[in-house]
């Protein structure tokens, strides 16, 4: 999917800087801010809402909020586009 509008909420106060979310993203949405030891959700428009980053975070610092309407089946009928 491209140009999705999924959102990611991140609470820096809860984050322990373990890097697991950064490592777990398989499509490079998340980058690492080494100076502040925090993830940066830099390419959210490429997020595939797999929830992996949220599921590995032991501090509950991440919430992935999918916007399913922004994903398209791209079939030829308007109702399935």
């Amino acid at each position: 999917m491209i140009n999705t509008r999924h959102r990611i909420e991140f609470d820096p106060d809860k984050c322990a800087g373990c890097q697991l979310c950064y490592k777990s993203c398989f499509v490079d949405v998340i980058r690492w801010d080494a100076a502040n030891r925090k993830p940066v959700f830099q390419y959210v428009e490429d997020c595939e809402h797999c929830f992996y980053c949220q599921s590995v975070c032991r501090r509950d610092a991440i919430r992935v909020i999918p916007d399913y309407e922004s994903e398209h089946l791209l079939q030829s009928f308007p109702q399935y586009h």
Binding site: K23, S24, C25, F26, V27, D28, C50, Y52
Partner: peptide, 12 residues
């Protein structure tokens, strides 16, 4: 390209 072990399909 991403992180071996986390990337790929088998872990999702």
């Amino acid at each position: 390209k991403n992180f071996a072990g986390y990337s790929g399909k088998a872990n999702r």
